[in-house]
């Protein structure tokens, strides 16, 4: 984590300009390292060519685990381990277990997905963030290009960014 790369940062003041710049970068074969925005910009992930997240699959797996846990715990406890007569009802009373099975499905899916989200994004309390520019959580949008050990690229990308309407271009070691 301690490795430092040299990045060229292009700052934009509008999400639509940013989207156009991403499109042109793709057309002129420039490799974008990352994009930073103060709010989710729709379509940005497609334009950047990011792989669709599989977080929902994780959610399904966690949910299924919750459902199974709830069912097997209740079946074991009330029908196998210590069968108790509650008002003459059957020990194995599936319909009465549906509410808890539902609740645990939701609980496991939600908790699991949230943990998976923070794990995948490598976010945790006390993390020292690599902040490109503090304005990026306020009103600015940025594209970064990795130019480590490649100073020739630098001027080319700078020119590209200025043409695409970047309001500011600078180099930064992150």
């Amino acid at each position: 984590m301690s490795t430092t790369n040299k990045f060229l940062v292009g700052m934009f003041d509008d999400d639509q300009t940013l989207l156009k710049a991403v499109q042109s970068a793709k057309e002129s074969g420039l490799k974008i390292a990352d994009a930073f925005t103060p709010f989710p910009v729709h379509g940005l992930e497609h334009k950047l060519g990011l792989r669709a997240t599989k977080l929902h699959t994780a959610g399904f797996v966690f949910g299924a685990t919750g459902l199974t846990t709830a069912f097997s715990l209740m079946a074991f406890a009330n029908a196998v381990d210590y069968p108790t007569n509650f008002g003459g009802k059957p020990y194995f009373s599936l319909p009465a277990w549906i509410p808890i099975m539902f609740e645990l499905t939701v609980l496991f899916a939600s908790v699991g997905m949230v943990i998976a989200f923070y794990y995948l994004c490598n976010l945790y309390p006390g993390k020292q963030p690599k902040i490109v520019d503090p304005r990026l959580t306020d009103d600015m949008f940025a594209l970064t290009f990795d130019i480590t050990g490649d100073n020739e690229q630098s001027s080319k990308i700078t020119e590209f960014l200025n043409k695409e309407g970047a309001v500011e271009v600078f180099e930064k070691d992150i």
Binding site: D34, T37, P40, V41, E45, T53, M113, C121, P129
Partner: peptide
């Protein structure tokens, strides 16, 4: 949690919010 607003994070964030 050290949030910086990277595009990938926002993508996951939106997916998480929706589900």
């Amino acid at each position: 949690f050290g949030w910086v607003g990277s595009a990938k994070h926002w993508e996951r964030f939106e997916s998480l919010a929706l589900i």
